[in-house]
Amino acid sequence: MTITDDYVSVRYIVDDVQAAVDFYTGHLGFEVNTSFAPAFADVLRGRLRLLLSGPVSSGARATPAAVAGPGRNRIHLIVKDLEAEIDRLRGAGLAFSSELVSGPGGRQILLADPAGNLVELFEPA
């Protein structure tokens, strides 16, 4: 299955990737799309792509200590050129909530909306 713009992706930070995969696939009708356990897996149900990031994943590392804890979940927006997006948003006067982080699946950076909700900009590897 190919991930396209037809999916809505939400990242959940989890303590145990395999346990989360088992829960979502065994109980809620999701299907495994990819798995890099213990770091990361993503599961699909309809148009929802649930990104399950374990403690060693780049997605979990990208959450700064200042915003860590309950509520670290964020929407995940795929971009084609992360550097260009960072430059564009900084040019608009926005500040980022994290540094640029690279991992096995790609690169990401966090941005907070005016209410403090996190948005992850992600460029696949």
Rank of each mutant, 00 (worst) to 15 (best):
F122R: 03
L44Y: 13
A39Q: 07
V101S: 03
R90L: 10
A19N: 15
T34M: 13
D42P: 02
L50P: 03
R49V: 04
T63L: 07
D22I: 03
H27S: 15
A20G: 07
I109H: 05
S9E: 13
F40I: 11
I13C: 03
E83N: 11
A19T: 12
S98R: 00
G106N: 07
E123Q: 15
R61D: 13
A39V: 02
L28F: 14
T25G: 10
E85W: 04
S98H: 00
T34S: 15
R107L: 03
R74Q: 07
V17S: 04
V67H: 12
I86V: 15
G91M: 00
S53W: 09
V10D: 06
V119F: 12
N117K: 13
D16L: 06
V67A: 09
S58P: 03
P55A: 10
E83I: 12
P124Q: 12
R61W: 04
T4L: 06
E120V: 08
A41M: 02
E123N: 09
F122I: 07
N33E: 08
A39F: 04
R49T: 06
F122N: 05
V56C: 05
S53M: 11
S102K: 05
R90Y: 03
V14F: 14
G69Y: 10
A19C: 12
N33Q: 13
V67R: 01
D16H: 09
G103R: 01
G59S: 13
D42A: 06
V10A: 02
R88D: 14
L89F: 01
D16C: 08
L118D: 11
R88C: 08
Y7C: 02
A60P: 00
F23T: 10
D113S: 10
D87N: 14
A115E: 14
P38V: 13
A68E: 10
R72A: 11
R47G: 15
R11V: 10
R72K: 03
L100G: 02
A65M: 00
G46F: 15
L48A: 12
S57K: 00
G103M: 07
F96A: 07
F96M: 14
L118K: 03
A68R: 08
F122E: 03
G105L: 07
P64V: 15
L89E: 04
S58D: 09
L77P: 01
I86M: 14
V10Y: 11
V32P: 01
T2D: 13
N33K: 09
D5I: 04
G59H: 11
G71K: 08
S97V: 06
V43H: 06
G59K: 04
L82S: 01
E123H: 13
T2C: 04
L77T: 00
S9K: 03
R72C: 08
A92I: 02
